[in-house]
């Protein structure tokens, strides 16, 4: 672990953090916000990032915790994955977050990595951005200028790039609590437990009387940002869930999933080429809906 030299600042309050980040923004300094460090530190180690300073949010307890706010659950940006997993509110009100978080890396990483950090890092291979996109989460950010909210559909701008402006810090995420009738699943396909998803599918499905009324599908690692599988969401409305996955028989859910890769531009790497990722997106979306719609 031999990064290039950098300055280190550890604000004692959120206001101070905003001030430090604001000053850096106006002077054009390349500062990086440090939360759990599980993504940032490897980049520093490999000298792929050369920030002039790290602003460590680790001593800001006000950014930690999970709060049930009725129609949504607010998760503080510094809440660790492990804390998210242990939260009864998360498990009961927003189970898709719990399902996806449980697949993040390993316990050691989950004890340090944070919910907000995963979002702000905006890695399309991360598990939680696809969940945020599927659930239409709202990102609450603050700067010296005050607070603003960014819908998930606008938050993930490009590969490792979020809508956070210089000087802004993510303070938490509003996760809509979907009502009764919804089922959830996160289908992650990866080669080892600690590896990133080759493809992941976050599915929320509302069904009634054996029919899918509505589905929200977020795809992991199918482009430079997480992607909504809009074509599937449109095609799946009104489809009977009963036949899903049954061997040999006609499966309308499978048909609806044929467009899972529409509008995606999957990456190519050592683990998968784009055509394989497209294929996986279709197969895994089918499986995810099958489980979520049960």
């Amino acid at each position: 672990m031999i990064p290039a030299p950098f300055d280190y600042v550890r604000p004692a309050s959120l206001d101070e953090a905003c001030q430090v980040l604001g000053e850096a923004a106006s002077s054009g300094d390349d500062v990086k916000v440090l939360a759990g460090g599980q993504s940032l530190l490897p980049l520093l180690r490999l000298r792929l990032a050369y920030p002039s300073a790290l602003v460590d949010l680790g001593r800001l307890p006000e950014l930690r915790g999970v709060e049930d706010r009725g129609d949504h659950v607010f998760i503080g940006a510094l809440t660790t994955h492990d804390e998210v997993l242990r939260s009864g509110v998360v498990r009961e009100r927003i189970p898709l977050v719990a399902l996806a978080t449980a697949t993040v890396a390993d316990p050691a990483v989950r004890h340090r990595g944070t919910f907000g950090g995963s979002m702000a890092h905006a890695d399309p291979a991360g598990d939680l951005p696809a969940v945020a996109l599927a659930l239409d989460c709202v990102f609450v950010v603050r700067s010296g200028e005050g607070e603003r909210e960014i819908p998930a559909a606008e938050f993930f701008v490009d590969y490792l790039e979020s809508a956070l402006e210089p000087g802004e810090v993510l303070i938490g995420v509003k996760v809509p609590a979907l009502g009764p009738g919804w089922g959830f699943h996160y289908e992650k396909f990866h080669r080892t437990a600690q590896a990133w998803a080759i493809v992941g599918v976050a599915a929320a499905v509302r069904r009634s009387n054996g029919t899918i009324e509505e589905a929200r599908i977020g795809l992991t690692n199918m482009g430079s940002t997480p992607v909504r599988a809009r074509a599937v969401e449109a095609a799946i409305r009104g489809v009977s869930i009963a036949a899903a996955g049954s061997n040999g028989a006609h499966d309308p859910v499978r048909d609806a999933c044929a467009g899972a890769d529409e509008g995606t531009s999957p990456p190519s790497d050592l683990h998968a080429q784009p055509d394989y990722r497209r294929h996986l997106a279709r197969v895994l979306t089918h499986r995810a809906i099958g489980v979520a719609g049960r």
Binding site: N247, A249, R254, D255, A258, G259, D275, R278, H279, R282
Partner: peptide, 23 residues
Amino acid sequence: GPGLAGDTTDRGEPGTAGDRTDW
């Protein structure tokens, strides 16, 4: 494959066939 082939012929939109032969 069971359950896979069912409707392959009437499922696809034109122009994407090459991508989805694997499907």
